[in-house]
């Protein structure tokens, strides 16, 4: 009853998806409300990445419906902040933290650019710089603003990527394996940072890291072709599937380990 009063941010109903003829997702069903910290877990090949692509509007479902803030994902593209997986980044690329944070940001929150600004797209005006600085402050990276991105550590680079996603002031932040290739200290820092961003922001994270998920998320969606949702704020992690299967945390970890 309580959930009906809250604003729905992500609503996935009856979604099926297949690559060619191979069915990847079947009857996916869940709803995420404003301010929640939701995590998607599940074995590799279980359809987590596909689900993410569907939510971002890169793929379209074969059946069912995905609504983000009540609209289709592409319509609310500017409301979604996305942090891609921290792999295959070109560390030799000559680009500064400021350039990365401002990347792809339309004028929505930085005001209209003057004619002079538009004639010199290489320069960032004061409003843009301030916007980048304040976003970097949120992730504790403001002193790195003029550094080359390749000089940063994996964890620092990931915080810059979070700042890039936050710069457009999204209502929903989607992260794909935010702590892969990052040491334990850096992982904790990133999750604490994400936790601090709620409840103003809704967070949706795909992760392998079950221990992080159980300590920070308040909702877990287990995806392995089908989806099972679990509310951590009501009871500790153990998921009841429609078939009556019952997974406790340890079993689930074992299962993830086996199929990985």
């Amino acid at each position: 009853m309580k959930e009906k009063e809250r604003t729905s941010v992500i609503k996935v109903s009856g979604v099926d998806f297949a690559y060619d003829r191979q069915k990847v997702l079947r009857n996916i069903e869940f709803e995420i409300y404003a301010g929640e910290f939701a995590a998607v877990i599940g074995p590799n090949g279980g359809g987590k990445s596909t689900l993410l692509k569907l939510l971002l509007g890169i793929l379209e479902p074969d059946a069912g419906k995905i609504e983000i803030f009540g609209s289709s994902p592409l319509e609310v593209r500017n409301e979604i902040g996305y942090v891609p997986q921290n792999v295959d980044v070109n560390t030799g690329f000559p680009i500064t933290v400021l350039d990365v944070v401002m990347m792809g940001n339309k004028n929505r929150h930085t005001g209209r650019r003057s004619l002079l600004d538009r004639m010199f797209p290489i320069r960032y005006n004061d409003i843009e710089k301030r916007c980048a600085y304040s976003t970097l402050e949120k992730v504790g990276m403001e002193s790195f603003i003029d550094r080359k991105i390749g000089e940063l550590s994996g964890g620092e680079r990931q915080r810059v990527m979070i700042a890039r996603a936050l710069c457009a002031h999204p209502g929903l932040l989607i992260l794909d394996e935010p702590t892969s290739n990052i040491d334990a200290k850096g992982q904790k820092r990133i999750y604490t940072l994400l936790e601090g961003l709620t409840p103003e922001l809704t967070i949706f994270v795909v992760s392998h890291d079950l221990s992080a998920v159980t300590s920070y998320a308040n909702k877990v969606i287990y995806v392995n072709r089908e989806s099972y949702m679990h509310d951590l704020s009501e009871k500790p992690l153990s998921i009841e599937t429609p078939e009556g299967e019952h997974f406790c945390e340890v079993e689930m970890m074992q299962m993830l380990g086996e199929r990985r």
């Binding site: 593209r77 979604i80 996305y82 690329f93 350039d99 990365v100 990347m103 792809g104 940001n105 339309k106």
Partner: peptide, 23 residues
């Protein structure tokens, strides 16, 4: 290159992200 520098930079650095931002 001068006119579309920001778009070119975004696509060169991270083309998937650039597409998601509407570039």
């Amino acid at each position: 290159v001068h006119r579309y520098y920001r778009e070119i930079l975004a696509v060169s650095y991270d083309s998937q992200y650039a597409s998601l931002r509407g570039i």
